[in-house]
Simulated assay, not measured.
Amino acid sequence: MTMRRDVHEELRARLHEAAGGHEPDRESILARVERGMAGPAASAHRATSPPVFGWMRVAGATAAVAGVLAVGGYAVASAVKDEAAPQQQEVATSPTPTPTPSPDATSRAAVPPVDPTPTTSPERRESAPPPSGKPSASVTARPPAATEDGPLWSDGSVDPHSNDFWAQSNITIKTREELTALTVRLRVAQTGGVSDAGAWRSLPENDFTLTVNEQDGFLVYTWTLREGRKVRAGEWVFAGQFDHDRGGRDAGTDRYTVTAAAGSDRLSVGGGFAAVNHTDGADDAGGDS
C-alpha cells in the first residue's frame, strides 16, 4: 500500500511541474499565422476570395491559442485533483459509525447463547428418592378374590343381602375334574361384635364336617370332605353367616383358602373378598353393610 502511494505522489509531482513550466508563446503563434497568410498561395487565395475569409483565419488562430491554453489549464486541474485524491480516499475508508438501535431492539430481552453441552435433564430430580417396589406399611394389600390352580378355580365375595347387623361371605369353587379331597376354610376378621350365625353349602350336608371357632382374632369356618366321599365336577358354593356391630363392615381383611386333590394332583387356591352390590344399589368396595 505504501509503494503504490509513493508512485502516485511522484506522478502527480511530475504532472504539476510540467503544467507549471508550460508557458504558451503567443507572439510566435501569431507570427506563424501571419507568415502562413503572407505566402503566395495565401495571396492568390485572398485575391480570389472575399475579405470575410481573412477574418475567419484570424478567428481560427485565436481558437487554436485558446485550445492550447485550455489544455494547459486541464493539466494543472488534473494535478490538483490528483493531489486532493488521497484525502478523499482517507475519508472513504474511515469506519462507519454504529447505528443507534431502534426502541423495539432496546426493549427486547437479550437472548443467551446456545450451550451445545446439555445440562442435567429436567426430568431427572436428584433430590427425589428412588421408587420403592414395596407398598407402604400403612396400606394393606387386598389379595385377589378369584384364583386358579389347574382344574380348580375359586372366588370370594360378600353376599349382596348383607345388612347393617348381619353379613354372609360366599366362597364359590369350580372344578373340571372329580375331587377326592376338599377342605374349604373361611376366616372372618373380628371387626367388632362378629359372632357365628350359621353356615351352609350347595353340596350334600352329610358329605362334610363343619367346625366354627375363633382363632387369632378371626372367626373361622372349616368345611372338610368326609373320607371316601367325592365332589363331582361342577360349580359349588360355601357360605358363612355372622352377626356384627351396627353399621357398615369392612371385609378387606377377611380371607379364604381351598385345598383339594384330583387324582394324584394336590391343588390349592385362595384369596380375599370382592366388593358387594347391595339390593338398594349401593356399592361397598370390599366391605359389608
Rank of each mutant, 00 (worst) to 15 (best):
A75N: 07
T175P: 10
A251M: 06
Q87D: 10
P122S: 15
Q87P: 00
T106E: 02
A77V: 15
A146Y: 07
D164H: 11
V80S: 10
V220E: 14
Q88W: 05
R266M: 11
G248Q: 03
S289I: 01
L210V: 14
G217E: 06
L182M: 02
D115G: 13
F273R: 04
G271A: 05
A128G: 08
G198A: 11
H161E: 15
T106A: 02
A66K: 13
A105W: 09
V231S: 05
F218M: 13
A64I: 14
F242H: 13
D280A: 12
V65G: 13
Q241A: 11
V139Y: 10
R226C: 07
R5V: 05
T172Q: 14
A239N: 14
L11W: 03
P50F: 02
E214W: 01
A181V: 00
A137Q: 13
G228T: 08
R255V: 09
A197G: 01
T120R: 10
N170S: 09
A38L: 15
A79S: 05
V111T: 15
D216K: 13
K174Y: 06
K174N: 11
A47I: 01
G287Q: 03
G228K: 04
H16S: 14
N163P: 01
G21C: 06
P50V: 01
P112N: 01
D283G: 13
G36H: 11
S121R: 10
D280M: 07
V71I: 15
R125G: 06
G54C: 04
F242V: 03
E17S: 07
S289W: 15
E27Y: 07
R176D: 12
E148V: 11
A31L: 03
G36I: 09
N277V: 04
P122N: 15
H278T: 12
A63L: 08
W153L: 08
P144H: 11
Q215N: 13
E83L: 05
G271T: 03
S136D: 06
S154L: 01
H22T: 08
G247A: 08
P130G: 03
T147K: 13
E9Y: 00
P131K: 09
V237G: 06
S94G: 12
L11V: 05
A285H: 09
V76N: 03
F273A: 14
A199S: 10
E90G: 11
R142E: 12
A199W: 14
D6P: 01
V231E: 06
L210F: 11
V91K: 00
L15N: 00
A260M: 02
F273D: 13
A84M: 01
P144G: 08
F218Y: 15
E10H: 05
G252P: 00
R124S: 08
I171M: 04
T211P: 00
Y74T: 07
D216P: 02
P86C: 09
R26M: 12
E90W: 09
N213E: 10
F218I: 06
G193D: 04
P51N: 03
R35I: 09
T175L: 04
A70I: 02
R26W: 01
R176I: 00
R142P: 02
T191Q: 02
L267I: 10
A282D: 06
A70N: 09
A197I: 00
A181I: 00
A63N: 12
G234E: 12
A85G: 12
N213Y: 12
E27G: 15
T117L: 08
D104C: 04
M3Q: 04
